[in-house]
Computed example of a mutant assay.
Amino acid sequence: MSKANTARTYEDFKPLFDWKREDGSDIVVINLPGFKKEQLKLQLDAFGKMKISAERPINGNKWIRSCKDFHVPEYCIQNDIHARFNNGILYVTMPKKATQTSTQPPALPAIAAPQPLPAGVTPR
């Protein structure tokens, strides 16, 4: 069998997710129907970026995959992040630092609107 016949083809999908805030933690809930725990991967880098990826076969050499990045808020304890997978739903719990356990957590950072270029300046 040639390599061309065994190459995987992928179908990308964007799972539904929700970000829940509680007194002691933030929880990301991601809907990953049809996946098994072994087909999921959660990675956290030193800059507070959490990457959740999932990949599973559909039939033959056709696979379905997903990859979603999240920024872990500074008020969460990165070393205590843990995940639980149950019935196609991934729960990622990010405990808050003790100073952030009030009922009013800080707002998520806003995305700044692009600023207009000064007159006479053209973009490259």
Rank of each mutant, 00 (worst) to 15 (best):
Q43E: 12
G48H: 04
P106K: 07
A110F: 09
N59R: 14
P114Q: 04
I81S: 07
D69N: 15
S66L: 01
V29S: 05
H71R: 12
L44K: 10
A110N: 04
V29P: 06
L117P: 08
N87W: 02
G24V: 07
N86R: 09
I27M: 12
L32Q: 11
D12G: 07
T101P: 00
L16W: 03
I64T: 14
R56P: 04
C67R: 14
F70A: 04
W19Q: 10
P109Y: 09
E38P: 00
I52H: 12
A83K: 02
A83R: 04
L32T: 08
R84Y: 06
P73M: 08
P114K: 07
N5T: 11
P33Q: 06
A98N: 09
P123S: 02
Y91G: 01
A7Y: 02
T101D: 01
P33A: 06
D23F: 06
F85Q: 03
Y75D: 10
A119L: 12
I111C: 04
F47L: 09
P118H: 09
N5S: 14
N31A: 13
E38A: 14
N31K: 15
R8N: 12
A107S: 13
L117R: 09
I77R: 08
K3R: 11
F13M: 10
P116W: 09
S102I: 01
Q43D: 10
E38Y: 05
N5R: 13
S53L: 02
T101K: 14
P109T: 05
M1T: 13
K41N: 15
Q100N: 10
E11M: 05
L117C: 04
